[in-house]
């Protein structure tokens, strides 16, 4: 393999890898506060990119993206308040099934609003033929946007959890909800906040990736599967491991095209998901003792 081609694959792998990582972090944030997998996570990504595309007809791109992220965050908040907040000690399974139902509803609403058309946001800089040369590989500037913005999101989230009182409260709730309540933390608000955050980062990921992958009402499903694989690969609840997991999956997928037909690309993530679930259900970085404490 030539060096150019190698870096071409790496760049493509990193692009998808970061998107998977962001979706996986979205899963993790909600998992940490509620113990559930939010199967509507992919729909946040779809909503974010579709809304931005519509808004972009009326306003400049940065504003459209900002507004669509805010709208998706509000959708996340409404979703939590309408369907989860009032449940009295619901089982994990019940909540998961609600998220599956919600993902179908959101998808159908999106179909009614936007139809089946495939759309895309314009490239943030340049157009589809613009490329920058890195180590001889020709890389679309949008790839750099994806990698850049996703890295910023990851770092900003880490800062949020580490250095703000809301971040600490969320971690406290994740670690021990009862003790957190007794410290005066409103645990229900923290759950709402986790939906808002997940929706926001999902929407942002949907916007940055839209020019490359295009957007459609059902784009969330494959992303949710990949994101879920990555979250499991890293170990549920561990956001930094999700980044590592995302990059591993992205790069594996990207290089798989070299040895087998690209139609099998998606099979890779499913195969990894199954292997991990069979052999290391705690994830690559998970510990056995931790796993024993998890409900799901």
């Amino acid at each position: 393999m030539s060096t150019e081609l190698f870096f071409q694959y790496i760049a493509a792998g990193l692009t998808y890898g970061f998107i998977y990582a962001i979706v996986a972090i979205g899963f993790n944030i909600i998992y940490n506060t509620t113990g559930i997998i939010n199967f509507a996570q992919g729909e946040f990504v779809m909503l974010g990119s579709m809304t931005a595309i519509t808004l972009n007809a009326f306003m400049p791109l940065p504003l459209a993206i900002l507004l669509s992220v805010l709208i998706t965050m509000i959708v996340g908040a409404i979703m939590e308040m309408l369907f989860f907040r009032w449940l009295e000690s619901p089982t994990v399974l019940r909540m998961i099934i609600i998220t599956i139902g919600l993902s179908i509803i959101i998808r159908e609403i999106a179909l009614a609003i936007w139809g089946e058309n495939v759309r895309a946001l314009p490239y943030f800089t340049g157009n589809e033929v613009t490329s920058v040369s890195i180590f001889g590989a020709h890389i679309s500037p949008q790839v750099l946007w994806v990698i850049g913005i996703c890295s910023i999101v990851v770092v900003a989230l880490q800062m949020f959890f580490k250095f703000t009182r809301y971040g600490r409260q969320m971690r406290a709730c994740a670690a021990n909800r009862e003790a957190a309540r007794l410290c005066g933390i409103n645990a229900k608000n923290m759950v709402t906040l986790s939906f808002v955050l997940s929706a926001g980062i999902g929407a942002l990921a949907g916007c940055v990736v839209s020019p490359i992958t295009y957007s459609q009402y059902n784009m969330g499903v494959p992303l949710a599967i990949k994101g879920f694989t990555v979250a499991i690969l890293g170990g549920l609840g561990n956001s930094m491991a999700a980044v590592a997991g995302g990059l591993v999956l992205g790069i594996l997928e990207s290089f798989s095209v070299w040895i087998m037909p690209s139609a099998y690309k998606d099979a890779i993530s499913i195969a990894i998901l199954l292997l991990i679930l069979f052999f290391r259900p705690g994830g690559l970085f998970g510990r056995k003792e931790e796993l024993a404490l998890k409900e799901f």
Binding site: A175, N176, A179, G184
Partner: peptide
């Protein structure tokens, strides 16, 4: 004992302060 796992001693105490 019900401390917050994955958080430092200082962070645990700061959670107490949050109200």
């Amino acid at each position: 004992i019900q401390l917050f796992a994955g958080m430092t001693v200082l962070e645990n105490v700061m959670v107490g302060l949050h109200t």
